[in-house]
Amino acid sequence: MVTTAPAAYDSKVEGNIIFSRLDACINWMRKNSLWPMPMGLACCAIEMMAAACARYDIARFGAEVMRFSPRQSDVMIVAGTVTYKMALAVKRIYDQMPEPKWVIAMGACASSGGMYRSYAVLQGIDRLLPVDVYVSGCPPRPEALLEGLMKLQQKIEREKAFSDQKKELQGVFS
C-alpha cells in the first residue's frame, strides 16, 4: 500500500525560505560577480592594474576576475586613449561580449578624448559604445575606479530586466 505524506508544515524548512523578486536576486548575483574585460590602452591601464592589486583589491567588489576573452566578461573597462586605429577593434571586442554587458569609461581619454584634441584620437568611446559609468581623472586613482564600479553596481541593482519581460509577455498573451 502506497502512502503519501501530506504536505505538512515543516518548521525546519520555513526558516530557510526567503521571498524576493526574481529581478532582485538576479541583479544581486550579477552585480557581485562582474568579470571585467580590461581594455587597457594607455596610462590609465596602470591604475586599473593597481586597482586589481593587493592594496586596493578590486576583489572586495567581486570584480577581480579580469578576463582577456570578451566571451567570458561582463563589463568592459576602457582604460586609456582610444585612437581611431584602435576604435573599431574595441567595438569588435565589445560586440563579442555576451549580454548582459556594461561599459566603464575610465579616465579623461576614454570619456572625451582627454587632452588629445587631435587628428588621431576618438573623442570619447561613447561615440561607439553605450557607456554606463564615466570615471573622471587623468589618470583616475584606483579609488575612483572602485567608486565607478560601485556606481555601476548600484545601476545594475535597479535594472528591471525580468519584470519588463514579464510585462511584454503579458501584452503578447492577453
Partner: peptide
C-alpha cells in the same frame, strides 16, 4: 591639428576633433 574626416571601411574612420 583637429584632423579631417576619413573612412576606410572595416579598418578605421576619423572625424575632426
Amino acid at each position: 591639428l583637429e584632423g579631417k574626416s576619413s573612412n576606410t571601411p572595416d579598418v578605421a574612420f576619423s572625424e575632426p576633433a
